[in-house]
C-alpha cells in the first residue's frame, strides 16, 4: 500500500482539488443530480493525469517496478484510492444538502 500512496503523490493535489471542486459544485447547485456531471469530470481529469504521468514522467516507473508493481497495478490501485476519496467526499457533501 505504501508504494501506491507514494505513486499517488504524483497527482493527489490536482485529483483531490477536483474532488473538492465537485463537492463545492454540488453545494452550489443544491442538486444531487450534479454528481453525474462531477463523476464524468473526475473520469476525464484522471485520464488526463494518468496520460500526463505515462508520457511525461515515465522514468519514475522503474522505481515502482523494482518494488514489484507493474504499471497496470499502479494505475488501477491509485485510481481506486482516488475514487474512494471522491466517493467519501461526495457522500458527505450530499448529506449536507
Amino acid at each position: 500500500m505504501q508504494p501506491i500512496l507514494t505513486f499517488y503523490k504524483n497527482f493527489r493535489i490536482i485529483a483531490i482539488s477536483i474532488s473538492l471542486l465537485g463537492c463545492w459544485a454540488i453545494l452550489k447547485s443544491h442538486s444531487p443530480y450534479s454528481v453525474v456531471f462531477i463523476f464524468w469530470l473526475k473520469v476525464f481529469t484522471n485520464a488526463a493525469l494518468i496520460g500526463y504521468t505515462h508520457f511525461f514522467r515515465s522514468q519514475q516507473f522503474i522505481f515502482f517496478f523494482n518494488l514489484g508493481y507493474s504499471m497496470r497495478k499502479l494505475y488501477l490501485q491509485t485510481l481506486a484510492i482516488d475514487f474512494f476519496i471522491w466517493l467519501v467526499l461526495t457522500i458527505i457533501t450530499l448529506n449536507l444538502l
Binding site: T6, K9, N10, R57, Q59, Q60, I62, F63, F65, N66, L67, G68, Y69, S70
Partner: peptide, 23 residues
C-alpha cells in the same frame, strides 16, 4: 515481470524527484 526477483538500476536516475531517500 516485476516479481522482485530481479532488481534493476537504470542509467537514468532511479528515484522519482518527490520521494525522499528516507522514504
Amino acid at each position: 515481470p516485476f516479481t522482485k526477483r530481479i532488481s534493476y538500476l537504470p542509467q537514468e536516475p532511479l528515484l522519482p524527484s518527490f520521494v525522499s531517500i528516507h522514504k
